[in-house]
Design a binder for these strands. Structure first.
Lengths: 267, 267
DNA sequence: CATTACAATGTGAATCATTCACATCTTGTA
DNA sequence: TACAAGATGTGAATGATTCACATTGTAATG
């Protein structure tokens, strides 16, 4: 009972990043604030959170903010990203070999990856670290130069690493997506790497939060028809839905707040 | 004046990891606690620290604890490691190509690397992320599988990356060091990687905190004579000093508390 | 050089979270 | 069942934090 409540609290805090004690009191009205305080104390000992005046913050989230401070606000669309990740994690089954892209959406997914027998390749050092918390997941990084804006590795060496490696499912993110240009990013060598992944993976899952739809960036790495699955939040414009149907791409709608149930199974 | 004080505060907090407000009041008796509070507020906005009841904590330090929670307590010998790193950073000159090993000592060094034109290769994702905060430093990671205990990449692919790459100065850490076995670690493939680095680097700097001296681990990756520089805290036993003299290895003593002055120049 | 504006700093009262010690309730075990 | 150990609740005491306001320092402007 105690352990379960602590886990609930931890999940909640990890998802929100920052909470006030008063929130937690509303969330769990059956226990006193003193109990919640003691739970937070424990979670702090476990290294999951730091307690602040009036509440607590997730350490993982703090590191994320710190790391992405140079690019954009992580908080933007975080709900959307969390719910997209919640849908994506349904495509993870034990024993598979996965690829995880860089980016905050992928980071949200990394946090939700179950501790099962998996092999996961990623090009993002921060995601590799997050994944390494799982005892049963073997984590590998593509080498290469680190792009300080996207926190992504790329370059010829990163690609060389991929030869002789099999990927069952690749979870890819894009900076922008439109019908004309397909999935695009702003960096040449990152696009090269993504193209290679698209070619090597057996199943391609594209993660795309709504703010990126109907926009374009310089380099295309995939077309809609390359994606078996497209997970997005909010409603897709009709023209896009039609195109997806033609391309035989399964579109999964993730609605913020779906994290818990999410059992409609669009797989 | 304000900016200078904030920087002092930040350095102090980053070094200590966790401070109480009362400490800061002693450190800077010329300003009121209210000013210090406002400074902490600013540093929190900058994403450097989190404020806690009664003080503040360094975010970088928190992430370190989180990451190394599986192995050992980071706090152990942290003073020693910081002072070793302070000595090591004197061997960093602009325009060079460096290698930084994995480990908390190397992480301490990473935090002190100046934001100069440098190329730095590392096998530790967490260190790569730390280094990426510097605008002028180009950071590269060796690829490979991630060892969750040492947070170090290794494996054949990691080594393949190194071909065609030149390293001016390599900063290496060891799990143990003795006259008989030399510098040793507990993992085979990590030893392989380190051996390669030792071979490729023009100058080899070994970082070693006192607790590791006169111990042995299974795999040797270098002998005393391979190291041009050996930086250690506390006094080295006479037999080791003699051996170092014979091996033409410069021994640098880092004494905890040296971070500020440290201008005796043993280079 | 005086003046104004603005940011940085100090002060003390009011507020609020937190801690602490102690009482009570569960839970697991012999 | 009875006991021990851990979990939880309560309210007073403590201590940190905030807030509004006064003051000082600093830089730009006429």
């Amino acid at each position: 009972m105690t352990a379960g409540r602590r886990q609930t609290l931890n999940l909640y805090i990890q998802a929100k990043g920052e909470v006030r004690l008063s929130e937690l009191e509303e969330l769990l009205p059956d226990v006193s604030s003193m109990t919640l305080r003691r739970d937070l104390e424990q979670l702090e000992r476990d290294g999951e959170i730091v307690r602040t005046r009036g509440g607590a913050k997730s350490i993982a989230h703090l590191s994320m903010i710190r790391e992405a401070a140079y690019t954009q606000r992580v908080g933007e669309n975080l709900d959307a990203k969390m719910s997209i990740a919640a849908k994506a994690v349904q495509f993870v089954t034990p024993g598979r070999s996965l690829y995880l892209d860089a980016g905050t959406t992928a980071m949200c997914l990394a946090q939700q990856i179950p501790d099962e027998s998996l092999f996961i390749l990623t090009s993002a050092p921060n995601i590799a670290l997050e994944l390494s918390k799982n005892r049963n997941v073997r984590v590998a990084l593509t080498g290469g130069q680190l792009n300080r804006d996207t926190l992504s590795l790329s370059g010829g060496e990163a690609m060389a690493y991929m030869e002789g490696l099999n990927i069952d499912v690749a979870f890819l993110t894009a900076s922008a997506f439109s019908l004309e240009s397909g999935f695009t990013v702003g960096d040449r060598s990152e696009a090269d790497l993504k193209r290679l992944i698209v070619r090597k993976a057996r199943t391609r899952v594209l993660l795309l939060d709504g703010s990126k739809i109907d926009r374009g960036m310089p380099y295309t790495f995939a077309r809609l028809s390359d994606a078996e699955i497209l997970i997005t939040d909010g409603p897709l414009p009709p023209s896009y839905l039609k195109a997806a149907k033609q391309a035989k791409t399964t579109v999964v709608q993730a609605n913020a707040g779906d994290e818990e149930k999410g059992k409609e199974g669009t797989a």
